[in-house]
Each structure stands twice: as structure tokens, then as C-alpha cells.
């Protein structure tokens, strides 16, 4: 079982992408999608060294909802800052200490940080303990760190890491 299906999560995802790409839900396409979803992880097994487990799928769904709302808000924030007076912006580099350890969780956190209001993740320290963030207009660095931790990091830790 383990050898035949190295990444059980990847198969339905790839099948879904195939169905979206072919833009139909014919039984033939579904079979082909599942076949691809089975063959591709098997052939690319060396690129995926880590096993991915989702411990709390519901938390992940809620996290995605929160992310979507934040993304829309972020766009309005950034649009306002761009259309406002660019001379008055106070950009800052902020170091965020990380408690996450899995690679996937750190990547998702970095993506979330970039998609949410006024911040872009810039660099991960080589020991994976600190993430450098560039904020477009930030005066209170500590409050930002607390917000990121509460809103994104704790749910991600619950979803991807066994506590």
C-alpha cells in the first residue's frame, strides 16, 4: 500500500487539477485523472521526501477561509497605500521568530504572510528559526508579530504538526 500510494493526498489533488484542465467531468477523464494522480507521485517519489499528514482538516478549511478574507482586505489596504502619499510610508524589516518546523508549514506561512496586508516574506534564516518580513507601512512591529502568530502560525501548527 505504502509503495503503491506514496502520497495519498497528492492523488485526488492531481486528479482534480486534471479535471479542471480538461474542463469536463466525463467518466473517461475521471479515470485518466486518477491514473495520472497515481502515476505521477510514483514517478516523482524522490522529489517528495517528507510525508504530509493533515491532523485537523476542519482547521485547514477555516484557515483557508480566513486567508481568503484577509487577501481581499490586503488588496484594499495596499491599493490605498499606493494611491495615497508614497512619501509618507514607513517601510520596515521585521524578524519573525518561527515555532513551526515542517517545511510545508513554513512555506504556507510565508505565502500567507505575502498575501496578507502590507507584508512580504523576504528571507528565511538558514537554521529555519527566523523569517524576515518586509512591511510596507508598519509602526508597531511587536503587534504585527503577535497578529501573525495568532492568526496564521498557531492554526498551521495545529494542522500540520502533532502537538
Amino acid at each position: 500500500m505504502r509503495r503503491l500510494l506514496p502520497h495519498p493526498l497528492l492523488t485526488p489533488i492531481l486528479a482534480g487539477i486534471w479535471l479542471l484542465l480538461s474542463n469536463s467531468v466525463n467518466p473517461g477523464q475521471i479515470v485518466l485523472g486518477l491514473l495520472l494522480g497515481w502515476a505521477i507521485p510514483l514517478l516523482s517519489i524522490h522529489f517528495w521526501p517528507d510525508k504530509v499528514y493533515i491532523y485537523k482538516p476542519l482547521t485547514l478549511l477555516r484557515y483557508m477561509g480566513v486567508l481568503l478574507i484577509d487577501m481581499v482586505l490586503a488588496n484594499f489596504t495596499v491599493a490605498r497605500l499606493i494611491l495615497g502619499n508614497p512619501g509618507r510610508l514607513k517601510p520596515a524589516f521585521i524578524v519573525l521568530p518561527l515555532t513551526l518546523t515542517s517545511d510545508l508549514a513554513i512555506s504556507i506561512l510565508a505565502i500567507s504572510i505575502t498575501l496578507t496586508p502590507g507584508t512580504v516574506s523576504a528571507q528565511l534564516s538558514p537554521d529555519r528559526k527566523h523569517l524576515l518580513i518586509h512591511a510596507l507601512n508598519e509602526t508597531d512591529a511587536d503587534a504585527l508579530i503577535v497578529t501573525i502568530k495568532r492568526r496564521y502560525e498557531i492554526p498551521l501548527k495545529e494542522v500540520f504538526e502533532k502537538c
Binding site: 487577501m71 495596499v78 499606493i82 494611491l83 512580504v120 518586509h134 510596507l136
Partner: peptide, 28 residues
């Protein structure tokens, strides 16, 4: 939003702030 994202590319002053416009405004 696409327009505003590119406007940020022209209006903002340094490279790191310019990064914000295209990544956010244009994705939405």
C-alpha cells in the same frame, strides 16, 4: 486592481516597497 498594482511599480520609491504592488494588487 491590475492598474493600481502597476501604478505602485511607478509611484513607490524603493525596490522593496515596489514588491508589494504587483504581488497583492495584481493577484486579486
Amino acid at each position: 486592481f491590475t492598474f493600481v498594482g502597476s501604478l505602485g511599480l511607478v509611484r513607490l520609491k524603493d525596490f522593496y516597497t515596489r514588491l508589494h504592488g504587483p504581488t497583492k494588487a495584481t493577484t486579486l
